[in-house]
Design a binder for these strands. Structure first.
Lengths: 349, 349
DNA sequence: TGTTAGCACTCACCTCTTTCGAGTGCTAAC
DNA sequence: GTTAGCACTCGAAAGAGGTGAGTGCTAACA
């Protein structure tokens, strides 16, 4: 059954009020808002209807109403007003994003920081999953006394390094660097199969004088390092903000939430897979019970047309959805633009 | 005035009890501990004396006593028992530290993680301030389309990189890499003065065909990157643990503390400068009011004889000092050993 | 002279009761 | 259909005792 215009207005007024105060909303509070000139009695009748329909509940008989998850859902789907980003917010966003950086990670960290600054909620972002970063440079650096560093740089400016406990001479290191580098640079990380590694092993055996055991050890680590280029990283920002909300005035709850936010696996599950562009999950719509009193808003960000990562905001169910959605939308657009440019450059070459 | 043996025993018993329960300690509770066969009345008299001397206070007339800051101070200085690390703890420590790593930062992060695991309090560590990491490798990598990455690796395996928005050809990049690298590798970071940079500029102008503006821009960033090798980093671990303690059951207090722990400047001030080997600061002994209900235990860690960084544990005033001190002592010894080895290798070469 | 039993006293905390008021639903009148 | 009015509900705040863990002090004892 559809909601009458009036019911919608009332529901919206109630949720707006509740988002601001976190207190059950009474009929009088709504009737005093003069936009709809109705008495509290009328509002009461309508509220009773809305409760029957499952959009509101009373925490106890003599209290006002608070929205249910379906109430919020209806609000988010149909009632929400377009939030106009403030000029200052937009300026801030543009300013921070304008500094040009060539580290994908840095861009994403920035985006996360901006999101948490604009919304004042906790943000969670995944680093771009590019599946095929092109290797620009690979080098073995002899650190001396039994350890060699493997260093890989991609065209997009990702740097990974790892130490291996093997002994090489400087000459061996540079020979091997050349052999591996020749075969590997220009390759994308997913083109580096075990066959390629085998291939390198053969060449190295012929050309360089390195004990087979050492060689295999190094090549394994090379594979690992390059493989790790595509690993999804997760960054959490402003987790402490949850302590500002009455929903978490119980430290035990707060601690559980912080522990949840510390667990990368949870978070990957939570926001790891691409969904609709702007995705809102309210309370129990989330797959984790830890979030049954929270909401999660996520957006994708893309390179070209391909979704490569996500930015999410976690806050209390009564979060300012309009603002969060608008902010994330802006931010993801900016990120798309910047990554788009970087990507275009890469494919042009 | 000195404390009689008996008073010391009683004070110790009270503080031990309070550390466990966080509740004011009454005379009966102490007299029931049969180690000193005294009636509660006697204990009461002694407690009254200890209160007069400033080691204890009563939160209110009809409550037990709790230690004052001076009480804790006396406890820490004179009464504390040597804590015997459990075999499991030592094993864990050895196991984690045994994996050999050549990244200074990784070692320190590990140490911090272990400290927070062993003590269950928040840990704060500073990265090693070596003042003179020796540069092993410096490279300019042309990422194409107006950006060049500067990459520096030290002998100890620190990797720093930064992008500059300039356009170079691959040839120019490799020429310049050679010029800079020749002059700079083997140098320690504090030997890289502006004079050296000027020197490089001159050489580059002669040998390479690079617009002066671009050159200066790049060299500035090179300087900056190398300079940043010696920056102190601060890592905080397990900050959320404060939520477990009744001292922070008020979320406002907890939030303030978490904000304090987020502010790197505060933390650098707090633990940045070397002090006695094991340093305990109780409550108001700390220079920050945010810590007036907390205690801070710090240890130095060294390379050879030189103190290069510190590890600290922040917890409630009624923390388990014996355990924390013992744990930190162990950890710093381990770190000293590992860093000592790394350093020896470096100077041998 | 140090120790202890005994006792009066204090005061936070708990529980029980009361009051208060914000909110409701229902009914009758407009 | 809307609204004024009223009885009703019930959580939260305020008040009133009661309880008990703690104290300090005194007097008696070894």
């Amino acid at each position: 059954m559809d909601l009458s215009q009036r019911k919608q207005k009332i529901l919206k007024a109630i949720i707006d009020e509740y988002i601001g105060t976190a207190e059950p909303v009474g009929s009088r509070a709504i009737s005093k808002k003069d936009d709809l000139g109705l008495s509290s009695a009328t509002i009461r009748n309508e509220m009773a209807d809305l409760e029957d329909m499952g959009y509101l509940i009373q925490p106890h008989t003599s209290a006002g109403r608070i929205p249910t998850d379906s109430g919020y859902r209806f609000y988010v789907d149909s009632l929400i007003e377009r939030y106009k980003m403030s000029v200052e917010a937009l300026e801030k966003l543009n300013m921070i994003m304008a500094e040009r950086v060539n580290h994908l990670e840095l861009i994403i960290k920035k985006a996360s920081l901006i999101a948490s600054t604009l919304t004042e909620y906790t943000t969670v972002v995944t680093s771009p999953k590019l599946n095929g970063s092109v290797i620009k440079k690979l080098e073995l650096i002899n650190l001396g006394h039994g350890s060699v560093m493997i260093l890989v740089v991609t065209k997009t400016g990702i740097v990974k390094n790892q130490s291996v406990a093997v002994t090489l001479s400087d000459k061996q290191a540079s020979e091997l660097t050349k052999i591996i580098s020749d075969r590997v640079s220009g390759l994308s990380s997913d083109e580096l199969t075990f066959d390629v590694i085998k291939d390198i092993e053969k060449t190295a055996k012929k050309k360089a004088d390195i004990p087979p055991k050492v060689l295999i050890n190094i090549l394994n680590f090379v594979y690992e390092t390059i493989d790790s280029l595509d690993e999804t990283e997760i960054y959490v920002n402003n987790a402490k903000s949850i302590l500002s909300y009455p929903e978490f005035s119980d430290t035990k709850k707060a601690r559980e939430m912080l522990e949840f936010l510390d667990n990368k696996e949870n978070l990957v599950k939570l926001i790891g897979t691409p969904k609709d562009n702007v995705d809102v999950k309210i309370g129990t719509e989330n797959e984790f019970t830890e979030l049954e009193n929270s909401s999660l808003v996520t957006v994708n960000y893309k390179v070209g047309d391909k979704v490569v990562g996500r930015i999410g905001v976690i806050g209390p169910k009564r979060m300012n959805y309009a603002k969060v959605i608008a902010s994330l939308d802006c931010i993801s657009n900016q990120v798309d633009k910047i990554l788009g440019e970087m990507y275009r450059e890469e494919s042009e070459e």
